[in-house]
């Protein structure tokens, strides 16, 4: 039963994710955190790991959650769940349904969805900032990560690696002071 729940939760997440990666955060939060399968801190850890490990972030995060909850069978369920909507929808499109995507009402609907996603993300960002900014060191890391990505255009891979190193460094400094 849990296997079907895992599959179904990630099927829904795949079906209502537009853009992948962070865009699926509101869905993940609702389906996973609200069920008690994981918490916000763990979700951020999954993203950090998903970003530096090979593969699509959305797939990595899904596999991680499935494996944490029910081992290898769990990971397979979440993996099948997240890719199934893509396989079904893209196959339908390739079978000649592309004209649906060209209809102006469909295009407008997608435009409407793109306006909702930022609104859905905002409460999550507020929550995550509150949780992760535990001291001045964390604030500094946030500022550096933001600057490195936004101003310098540095790849998230390097940002995650750099942030991990800074985390170790700051913890050592704190340890010495204490």
């Amino acid at each position: 039963m849990i296997y079907f729940q895992l599959f179904w939760a990630f099927f829904k997440i795949g079906l209502f994710t537009f853009g992948g990666g962070y865009a699926m955060l509101p869905m993940l939060q609702k389906e996973l955190v609200c069920r008690g399968w994981t918490d916000d801190d763990e979700l951020m850890d999954y993203y950090a790991i998903g970003q530096v490990t090979p593969g699509i972030i959305a797939v990595n995060v899904s596999t991680f959650v499935g494996y944490k909850i029910k081992g290898l069978p769990g990971a397979l369920c979440t993996l099948f769940g997240i890719v199934m909507p893509s396989i079904l929808i893209i196959s339908l499109l390739a079978a000649g349904l592309t004209y649906i995507w060209d209809l102006s009402v469909v295009q407008h609907a997608f435009k409407g969805i793109r306006l909702v996603i930022p609104a859905l993300l905002l409460p999550i960002i507020v929550k995550m900032l509150k949780k992760s900014l535990v001291d001045m060191g964390a604030v500094l890391i946030l500022a550096l990560a933001f600057g490195a990505n936004f101003v310098l255009g540095l790849s998230p891979v390097w940002i995650v690696i750099g942030a991990g190193c800074l985390g170790v460094l700051f913890s050592r400094i704190k340890g010495k002071k204490a």
Binding site: Y22, M128, G162
Partner: peptide
């Protein structure tokens, strides 16, 4: 300590 550093960085990237 690594995860203490990763969480604010992930929050920044979501922003």
């Amino acid at each position: 300590a690594v995860f203490y550093g990763l969480r604010p960085a992930v929050a920044g990237m979501i922003c």
